[in-house]
Simulated assay, not measured.
Amino acid sequence: MDQPRIWRLLDTGFRSAAQNMALDRVILESRAQGRCPDTLRFLQFARPSVLVGYHQQTDQEVRLDFCQRQGMEVNRRITGGGAILFEPSHIGWEIVASREDPFFRGSPEQGARLIAEIFCQAIREEFGLPFSFRPRNDIEIRGRKISGTGGTAEGKAFLFQGTLLVDLDIWQMLRALRVPMEKLKAHEVDSLMERVTTMRRELGFIPDAARIKEAVARGFASALGVGFQVAGLTPWEQARLEALLPQFSSSSWVDRPSPVSQRRSLIKALHRGDGGVIRLLLDLDSARKRIRSAVISGDFFAFPARAVYDLESRFKDIPARMEEVEILLEGFFSEGSSPFPSLGIQDFSQVFRKALGKIPYLELGFTFEETHDLFPVGGSLSQVLGRG
């Protein structure tokens, strides 16, 4: 019988944000250069830390003054995606491996699904929780996000990572990230909070971190057909960490401007139809004219309830154009019987049209609040301006 391949099981413990982000770079470089074996890494943070994605602008995503007052660290990931709050209770997990491994030779999307589903299966078997992967990068329980994922590559190696929310101070998260809560009504904040869950919420207690890590390692060992050997950083990795730490601690890294200009806006719209009321909240990157995410709520029925989350997931980082919205709505409603018995595709199309119709107001300098009180007479805004 062939002996299983041996991977490194690396737990780097509680570290600062700068150390953890530098270690992502160090271990990826080490694997790309053949200096270390394929690795499953666990990481945690010594204190609450806000991490922006590689392509984001820190001051656009983070309330820096709040973080400073709270003693929270702020740093930048080497992977893309959105800003997150990483608390000491959260468990980070990473696969750093060779891209030439037959197990990972598919597309990046296929690799992401494969690894995420192994993680989901490991948690399902250990805790009985219905974890599931939702492309592109979320792990959920019944439609509520409990782990984000992301990755990057260098040479012949790749890094794929996830963050498991064990517990969460969601009010601290909303205040640390630049979510304009002061512009949202209570029910809108509640709607945002309902889209996130934690191990504590699902289990009724905080599971031991060691139990989670053991379950995840066992799941990957079984699925990949590998054995794990517990080991620390190599001497080369330790030296490389010390060399890179000043860079990852510097303002030039943390506050580095994005190569793509970003300007974040929130747009609200409401549609009253015969079958109910739909409220839409769009998180808009107005500089790039892209919808970052959508939150749909209101007075209507959905069967199953998670159908709302399934619909919302279609509107992540898409062009802020009605043609694109209508294509996605048609795709959703063509997959089977409608989960919204009293609402049709036209209802959702109308509320998106109302929201996107407010973008020109923002471009003219009106504020988020003012867009709710402006109603063009005699046509759309573009039609009215065209007659001016």
Rank of each mutant, 00 (worst) to 15 (best):
L40S: 13
L40R: 09
L40K: 01
L40W: 10
L40G: 10
R41E: 13
F42T: 07
F42V: 01
F42R: 00
L43Y: 04
Q44V: 05
Q44D: 06
F45G: 12
A46M: 01
R47T: 04
R47F: 10
R47Q: 14
R47N: 11
P48G: 07
P48W: 09
P48I: 02
S49V: 09
V50C: 06
V50T: 02
L51S: 15
V52Q: 02
V52G: 07
V52C: 01
G53P: 03
Y54Q: 13
Y54H: 15
H55W: 00
H55K: 02
Q56R: 03
Q56P: 05
Q57E: 07
Q57P: 03
Q57G: 13
Q57C: 05
T58V: 11
D59K: 09
D59V: 06
Q60W: 08
E61G: 05
E61P: 03
E61D: 13
E61R: 05
V62A: 02
V62D: 08
R63F: 14
R63M: 05
R63N: 15
R63V: 12
R63T: 04
R63E: 10
L64D: 11
L64T: 12
C67K: 00
Q68V: 00
Q68H: 09
Q68A: 15
R69W: 06
R69I: 08
Q70W: 04
Q70M: 09
Q70K: 10
G71E: 03
G71N: 02
G71Q: 08
M72T: 11
M72A: 15
M72H: 13
E73I: 05
E73A: 15
V74A: 14
V74T: 12
V74C: 15
V74S: 04
N75Q: 12
N75A: 15
N75M: 07
R77I: 10
I78D: 15
I78W: 05
T79M: 00
T79Q: 10
T79A: 01
T79E: 03
G80E: 01
G80Q: 03
G82K: 03
G82I: 00
G82H: 07
A83K: 00
A83D: 05
I84T: 14
L85I: 02
L85W: 07
L85V: 13
L85Y: 00
L85R: 05
F86C: 14
F86M: 13
F86Q: 13
E87W: 05
E87A: 14
P88M: 11
P88Y: 09
P88V: 02
S89M: 02
S89T: 08
H90D: 15
